[in-house]
Design a binder for these strands. Sequence first.
DNA 1: AATTGTGAACCTCTTCACAGCT
DNA 2: AGCTGTGAAGAGGTTCACAATT
Lengths: 221, 221
Amino acid sequence: MTIGTNGNKISDATVRRLSKYYRSLKYAYDRGMRTISSQELADMNGLTAAQVRKDLSFFGAFGRRGLGYYVADLQRNIARILGINKTWNVALVGAGNIGRALIDYDQFRQQGFLIKLVLDNDPNKVGNIYHGIEVKDFANADEEIRKNKIRVAIIAVPSQFAQGVVDKMVESKVRAFLNFAPITVQVPDGVFVRNENMAIELEALSFALTNRREPRRTIGQ
Amino acid sequence: MTIGTNGNKISDATVRRLSKYYRSLKYAYDRGMRTISSQELADMNGLTAAQVRKDLSFFGAFGRRGLGYYVADLQRNIARILGINKTWNVALVGAGNIGRALIDYDQFRQQGFLIKLVLDNDPNKVGNIYHGIEVKDFANADEEIRKNKIRVAIIAVPSQFAQGVVDKMVESKVRAFLNFAPITVQVPDGVFVRNENMAIELEALSFALTNRREPRRTIGQ
DNA sequence: AATTGTGAACCTCTTCACAGCT
DNA sequence: AGCTGTGAAGAGGTTCACAATT
């Protein structure tokens, strides 16, 4: 949670929806739409129009009554709110299957998340080049992080190493982690973590199939 | 949402936490713990003890007052609740970077999600073998889905194909989708989708770093 | 003495509904 | 006439606090 323009608390759910609106606006713009209503944005994301307006209202009054929102204008505003109106240098730790796939993940690059540094401690991987980036030794993490001005890292190492990797990188002033290891890592105040666990998503589907009574269109998120 | 043993609605948040408890119980069991308290489970996941007890209470009274929960017993119960006390045959569509990485993703296999079928429509990929599985032509999806008894699919195709792929597979009686394409796909009643968008997670971190006022340990989840 | 299970209180998020603006 | 922005109501989720149990 952080604070919006009016001192309101912004929920994580709102932030995630902003990301969705941003994608919808891109899509709309590419299709030649110049204005868009809250109802249209809602339909594109399986939400209500009131929800869309409420989310946006935490950050300002971007719309025009009777008309809707200017697509390009709103897109720019959301980019600024999310902090993706610039690029972020990102480190990736762990050049295994998942890690190597993420080095070349288009969605990251498109939103300005540039993987500038790949670290691993496996001597068989250090020095290898994947998607044009050379794997550096995690032993030199501190130096490499400073050199590449990294504040965000993606953790794709086995569970038992995740906490140690994060601790070391926090010392080197990395301030946000996207953690793919299936374990909850602890960080000090002022440092942010999102735990991404793809198996949990499949388990939620398994639960839904196993326990379904009243069908629903989309679960959770 | 579905219905618990007492007719209560079960929230998506509760289901996700059950997955985490399941992992914690595995970890505890491997370390020789035979009983565990709600407080211990809470600490392992950054939650409150009351939250843990409330979550479990939706499905029954698994604990023993004064003692806690029997680790193995609770683990078994959660596996049954989540529907992961058996294996699921899973199809993966899209043998790109992410798709190929997921074929060999250990976390899926460990929870009983077995990727039995890989589909793609690229002639350069059909027939190739990745991690021991041959890529089949998506044109034959219906036949392959029936042959492999698939009810769950992972979608790792470009956005513009995602909805079409899902529609076709719904016709072949696939009932749950884990969608990695950065678009909200629509499905009929009785079919479940989870939209997994890794870039959105980074954007939430970007937002946190950009707007932070009062630091917090973990955002969202 | 320790710890669960749970109703009630509390807090947060979503939806409603309409005044206000274009 | 159409659509936003928002206070208030409603729904849903979390925490409290304590009786019940071992």
